[in-house]
């Protein structure tokens, strides 16, 4: 299962579709404030693009795209971004994850909440994307060399 596919049609289609899926994922993540979308959906779409490449061009060839040994680290980084936003809010004088007390002076509290939500969703996107890729790699025994 981890090898390259034998059909050239599937390989070319996968190579062409994966960047488009990931572009839509980034759009859904950044459009989450104004329409249906957000961190979870964008992260799942980004992971879907990576997994399509893993299935079509083979796990060894797609390591240059997203390396299997770095995904678990990136998942931890996503969780740390989320919790770090909350701790910065504590240092600014508010409660845990209370974005109105982030140490940014020139913004109103309502717009600080806007950017706090954006940071938190960045952490969610990174964590969900790399977490799903990690589970796939573990099940299919992609090498951790």
């Amino acid at each position: 299962m981890t090898g390259q596919t034998h059909s050239p049609i599937i390989e070319v289609a996968g190579r062409g579709l994966a960047p488009i899926i990931q572009l839509i994922g980034i759009y859904v993540f950044f459009h989450g404030h104004y329409g249906p979308g957000g961190g979870f959906q964008g992260g799942v779409l980004l992971a879907a693009g990576v997994l399509l490449l893993r299935m079509t061009v083979g796990a060894e060839n797609s390591q240059a795209h997203v390396a299997a040994k770095r995904t678990l680290t990136n998942c931890a980084i996503g969780a740390v971004i989320f919790v770090g936003t909350g701790i910065v809010a504590i240092l600014g004088g508010g409660y845990f994850l209370d974005y109105a007390h982030l140490p940014v002076q020139w913004l109103e509290p309502a717009y600080m909440r806007y950017y706090g939500i954006l940071f938190v969703e960045l952490g969610i996107t990174l964590g969900v994307m790399t977490g799903l890729i990690t589970i796939y790699d573990d099940i299919l025994e992609v090498d951790y060399a």
């Binding site: 957000g38 979870f40 799942v44 969900v128 799903l132 589970i135 796939y136 573990d138 099940i139």
Partner: peptide, 20 residues
């Protein structure tokens, strides 16, 4: 339910890992 869907996917992955 948005959070519940992601948790459902992760529990599915863990149960597949145990089955494998």
């Amino acid at each position: 339910m948005l959070t519940a869907i992601v948790v459902a996917v992760v529990t599915l992955g863990v149960s597949f890992a145990l089955a494998v």
